[in-house]
Amino acid sequence: MWSYILRRVLLAIPTFIGISLITFFIMHLAPGDPATMALQGDSIGKGMSAANIEQMKETLGLNDALPVQYFRWMKRLVCLDLGESLKDHRKVTEKIWEALPNTLLLNLLALIVVYIVSLPLGVFSAEKQNTFFDKSITTALFILYAIPVIWLALLLIMLFYVKLNWFPASGIQSLDSEYMRWWPWLFDRLKHMILPLVCFSYAGFAVISRYVRSSMLEVIRQDYIRTARAKGLSEHKVIYKHALSNALIPIVTLLGLELPGLLGGSVIIEQIFSWPGLGWLFFDALNSRDYTVIMGLTVFTSILVLLSTLLSDILYAVVDPRIHYE
């Protein structure tokens, strides 16, 4: 097993280099560049003459040959320096670090909420397959899934912010949150979080509970369950001790794959709710061709993806004794 892990880690390095290379070249070859984007912000547009753009490109080092630029970036990366944003010259790590907790918090909570709700729902659906309960739960969850997020977000805002005034519609905290004591501060943060959280998680209920249900159904057909019943074990023990633990195997590995999603951040939700997360950061960087930030975010996501697939594969082998890697 350990040699397998070692091999995977070693293999991750060329994979990572491959990803960074491809991203780098796609970015640079796409039309548009950060100098033009930065200069066109002026209220008169005077800055956008070709001479000025050239000048800026020169200063930012964008006129060097692509491989040269790539190596420069790589060199800094090895020293754990992601460089500065080409838009506002702040350190990329700083910008990511600011947005990271917001996205992470929302995603993590959404994940927890989704799993807490979906697991029991999926198990019960499987238990009562084809009954009214199963059918109505299925339909209800699918209905929920089918609602377009823009719609839902707007509806939630209209209802809970405009009409009922229960929850705020933008930001992660109130203006005077710094002056609040512990408990009101927590409450304030939670209040701001609820609407985006709902938007983040509502689609997941259907997906995860379907997986759980499908996995349970599969396990229940197995011979060993029949044996357990024949042995006279209580139904309760059969389901929750024997079936469930086996059914959870693919779910656990699925969890491993959720990791990259944790840093995903949905651009739409973040923009509608003014939630300063990684989705917004990335989208903004893409639009302003902020190469360093894009590369920095790609590094982050790549590392996470590589880690999570490794984790997921390992978990799979650990949890299911039938699987082994040479």
Partner: peptide
């Protein structure tokens, strides 16, 4: 894995 690393919007 490489494909997974590419964000959709990109």
């Amino acid at each position: 894995e490489i494909m997974m690393c590419f964000p959709f919007f990109f």
